[in-house]
């Protein structure tokens, strides 16, 4: 199976690889995994607490090229968004952007789950965990 050019680009030059201090109150951490393939993805956001805007995002993914590309793309999209806008990112957006084939759709689902987990973690730290934020999970 051939990867799309965009997947290859993110795979060869992943954006925003790294991590933030998990205990920082401005940081939300999402850790997700897929038992079928053993992929594990950590995605973190650093939020400006006054504006609610995500100022930086980092990730580290162990998995296939599509999983790395999905999370790399997600961090690019997260920067500059508010936490609520971040929750609107859908896995189908990632599928379309990267032209993922059907067998790799679960990678985009993983990335969406990671975003939601990171935002939920951030909100939990802020003590503003709303029922909606729990429900999206």
């Amino acid at each position: 199976m051939a990867y799309s050019d965009k997947v290859l680009d993110h795979y060869n030059n992943p954006r925003n690889v790294g991590s933030f201090d998990k205990s920082d109150p401005r940081v939300g951490t999402g850790m997700v995994g897929a038992p079928e393939c053993g992929d594990v993805m950590k995605l973190q956001v650093k939020v400006n607490q006054e504006t609610g805007i995500i100022e930086d995002a980092k990730f580290k993914t162990f998995g296939c090229g599509s999983a790395i590309a999905s999370s790399s793309l997600a961090t690019e999209w997260l920067r500059g968004k508010t936490v609520d806008q971040a929750l609107e990112i859908k896995n189908t957006d990632i599928v379309n952007e990267l032209s993922l084939p059907p067998v790799k759709i679960h990678c985009s689902v993983l990335a969406e789950d990671a975003i939601k987990a990171a935002i939920t973690d951030y909100k939990k730290k802020q003590g503003v965990l709303t029922p909606e934020a729990v429900a999206v999970h």
Partner: peptide, 12 residues
């Protein structure tokens, strides 16, 4: 993947 407990993911 929801059945994977978070602490296991951390270890992984």
């Amino acid at each position: 993947g929801k059945d994977v407990p978070p602490e296991l993911l951390e270890e992984v």
